[in-house]
Design a binder for these strands. Structure first.
Lengths: 332, 332
DNA sequence: TTGTACGCGTTATCAC
DNA sequence: GTGATAACGCGTACAA
């Protein structure tokens, strides 16, 4: 691949002049610039990132940690993020972390060893030692968290207000006459969406409805788990008249069960999901759910990280986005 | 951060000796080695990847190009690939390419500028100029293609035998008495799965069934497109008694339509998908489909690329995996 | 407005 | 076994 010296020779100038054109700083005569640009075009010149990085200590690489790529949320989110990073000259390392075990910290070390410019992290973990490590790293390499569980950790964080969203959804169910509202939450060790559950609890309390422990189930985020949770709920001596799930995927499992058992939705049982997956429009019946402002969150995440990288490395940015209720046919 | 010179000074040796210890090649007296190791430990020394890369032209990074992350196939595939690359000391850049436009070539240039060690590519494109460019790059930087469309392009390729898989599925439908088998293929400009279509054509020909042009629809890989295609097929004066789709996602759209119009599946119309998505088990009724050997393909892809990188850079490896029919309830 | 010269942290090639 | 030294491609004072 052509280097800056080749360009200089062909354009009949010195490499410093080429460098000035490439990095767009310093004065270059318009004519010279045009000529150099043309040669670069012809040779399809790209600056060597190693050499550049050695001088500037910047890699224009970002590390992104996902705990689980199978969740459609991440891919949706990443499609947007990748577009923006490319536009701004960055490329992303994608690391899939294992929620069990130490792989998160190891992946972070791998990334750091490659002198990445910043890190975006979706995580299951939140123990103090881990947070402390992140905070330390953040002093040199900006970290952006995308889980509400990091809200008060002294780290930058862009996420959706799952508590408020769930609160509003619960309220909607209550307004429609539901009084026995069950909730399928995530397993305790994966506390990513715990704040959603908080919204449910808070709304019941505010509405003076009693919280029935038998109506709260922990499941593992899969459709199958949603199915089983619904089974457990509906076979209970006092079955609920509405089921909320912390994710659409689990809500779809609930629908699978209810449909199979010929329950009438929403009259026998109402169902509320969370995420507004594309697939949620096509369930039978179409799923009422809580929509995150996907695009805004994705755009804000990457733009914020790049801002932190390029401007104020040690700033802490925290922003929460409101969710929106999508009332479809699983609610009255 | 400490560099090799600091270590050398503190250990009272030259940086060449430190380098020999770090990269573990060349002879160093055990005593000297121990002393150097200790100093490195104390200063928490990490080699600078920029300088190292500049010298060796190796980044231990791999670039992966996906045309569309929303297809669950990719995420499934990548989860496996990422695990293996980490084990072998690599990290992956993930680029989402835009099927329309030149973004593929630009992303490849971006990757090359970062001196990635190898490229894995899933692509929509296959024009001669593009292939030629890839072939040229492949002389220096190993490229592995994961689409059957690259089979005869002189590039390394690991993929599933979509032609044979579709041939077998078509045969199965014919054996069950279906005679009017429609096929929903991809748009012509996105020829990724054309070989699947070939299998359909070949089987019809081998079975002396007439190919009805009105029963062949090009659609755009979404669920909605599958729906519309089914609508077009079923409203035709001579509707089919079976519909095959090039992907499960489109087949699911077909089911959406047929269910809505209260067709009886599979008696009125049989349906066959392709991909064996996790979701295909949960459609109503559960979708008969063609399963790719996911894990094997994923493992083989990354291991092959790393082999090409580390051993025989210019070798060409081609391997095709057989598919397996999953007969569920959308077929007789 | 442009060119010269040097250094960034490594590894590789010598010579000792 | 070890050390000096030359690259690798780029950015940037400083000189012209």
């Amino acid at each position: 691949m052509a280097n800056i010296k080749d360009i200089a020779k062909l354009a009949g100038v010195s490499k410093s002049t080429v460098s000035r054109v490439v990095s767009n700083n310093g004065f270059v005569k318009e004519e010279t610039r045009a000529k150099i640009m043309k040669v670069m075009e012809n040779l399809n010149y790209r600056p060597n990132m190693f050499a550049k990085g050695m001088r500037t200590n910047r890699s224009f690489s970002i590390g992104i940690l996902f705990p689980d790529l199978k969740n459609p949320f991440f891919t949706e989110w990443y499609s947007i993020v990748d577009t923006i990073s490319r536009e701004r000259g960055y490329l992303n390392y994608i690391c899939v972390t294992d929620p069990k075990g130490e792989s998160e910290e190891m992946r972070i070390d791998d990334l750091l060893a490659r002198s990445i410019d910043g890190i975006i992290i979706f995580s299951y973990r939140k123990d103090d030692a881990f947070i402390e490590k992140l905070r330390k790293i953040n002093k040199l390499t900006p970290i952006l968290c995308c889980d509400s569980m990091f809200l008060d950790s002294g780290l930058s964080c862009i996420c959706a207000d799952g508590e408020k969203g769930t609160y509003n959804a619960t309220q909607k169910l209550i307004e429609s006459g539901n009084r026995n509202i069950a909730y399928i939450k995530g397993k305790d060790e994966f506390s990513v969406v715990d704040n959603r559950f908080e919204g449910y609890l808070k709304c019941l309390a505010d509405s003076s409805l009693k919280i029935n422990d038998a109506h709260i189930i922990s499941a593992n985020f899969t459709r199958g788990c949603g199915y089983k949770a619904a089974e457990e709920l509906m076979e209970h001596s006092n079955p609920p008249d509405a089921i909320m799930a912390a994710t659409d995927l689990m809500a779809m499992g609930v629908l699978d069960y209810l449909n199979k058992k010929n329950y009438h939705i929403p009259d026998d049982v109402a169902v509320f999901g969370y995420d507004n997956l594309v697939a949620a429009k096509n369930t039978s019946p179409p799923l009422s759910t809580i929509a995150l402002p996907f695009n805004e969150i994705a755009e804000k995440s990457i733009n914020t990280l790049i801002k932190l990288i390029e401007e104020d490395k040690t700033d802490i940015v925290v922003e929460m986005f409101d969710c929106e209720l999508k009332m479809r046919n699983t609610t009255k």
